[in-house]
């Protein structure tokens, strides 16, 4: 009986809490822009996805590190405010932004027209390729040869948006909530291959030489950018300016090369 009461109360509280988030955010935006608020509070909150090498990882002392983390630190420094990381997994990157937990998402979010219906992309600051990778013994040479194979993908990623489109009928695609589970499925042999960024595939191959993970084929190359809520126009414009300046002065290229080991391709603007 007591347990039942607890349930009722917990459920109701959850709904009220979730509903409360939205009006708060709306109020803040009526009075002043998020860019103004960031400068007034001297604090910007940026998403940190720390299980997605080389974009975000935890270093040996448990601190966030990686190309997107370094990008966020540089951006906060140039804004002249303190940086607060909001830890998210791949699935939470956009929800955390929409719920007002973060002001900016800098978590390797690739630019797609679908995503742009709910959030606003700034100009891209990096590029990545999606590959299908797997152990040597898995025979995959192109998209068509995925038929009959079990392929792991991570939800809310570019691979989820692109791999199913090229997969032939009979491909058994399974979805995981974060890249760590996808990697685990690949290494434990639960799947024949996995779709992920070329950097993630390289990092797995380097760290697990025994597993003999190799790239099978490249699915697509895409650009990723900082993301803000659609209403935050002034913040988006400031970030666009920041990307423009830092792609000219070589700062973005330096960060990209340091973490990915690859030269930054020329960046288009949005």
């Amino acid at each position: 009986m007591d347990r039942r009461k607890l349930f009722g109360a917990g459920g109701a509280a959850g709904i009220v809490l979730a509903a409360g988030v939205v009006p708060d955010q709306a109020k803040a935006q009526d009075s002043m822009s998020v860019l103004d608020r960031i400068q007034r509070d001297k604090k910007v909150r940026i998403t940190a996805e720390v299980d997605s090498p080389p974009f975000g990882i935890l270093d040996s002392s448990g601190q966030p590190d990686g190309s997107e983390i370094a990008t966020a630190r540089q951006l906060a420094k140039d804004l002249g405010v303190d940086l607060e990381f909001v830890q998210v997994n791949a699935t939470q990157r956009i929800p955390a932004l929409l719920a007002g937990r973060a002001d900016i998402a800098i978590s390797s979010l690739s630019i797609t027209t679908d995503r742009a219906k709910t959030i606003a992309f700034c100009s891209p600051h990096g590029a990545l390729s999606i590959v299908v990778c797997g152990p040597k013994k898995t025979v995959i040479t192109d998209a068509a040869s995925m038929a009959g194979k079990r392929i792991a993908l991570t939800r809310a990623t570019l691979e989820e948006a692109t791999v199913p489109k090229v997969a032939p009928k009979g491909t058994d695609i399974v979805f995981f909530d974060d890249i760590a589970a996808t990697i685990q499925a690949l290494l434990s042999g639960q799947v024949d291959a996995a779709g992920m960024s070329a950097f993630a595939a390289k990092s797995i191959a380097d760290r697990n030489p025994g597993a003999a993970i190799e790239n099978k084929f490249t699915v697509t190359t895409a650009y990723y950018s900082p993301v803000v809520r659609q209403a935050d126009e002034s913040l988006r414009h400031w970030i666009d300016t920041w990307v423009f300046v830092n792609s000219r002065n070589g700062v973005l290229a330096g960060i990209y090369e340091k973490y990915t080991g690859v030269a930054l391709p020329p960046l288009p603007v949005i």
Partner: peptide, 23 residues
């Protein structure tokens, strides 16, 4: 859903991550 089994949460996660209507 964390081990890629299909249930209501897994389907919800897939739908919200493809439509971005998470709320």
């Amino acid at each position: 859903s964390a081990i890629s089994a299909t249930d209501l949460t897994a389907i919800t996660n897939t739908l919200q991550s493809t439509t971005f209507r998470s709320f």
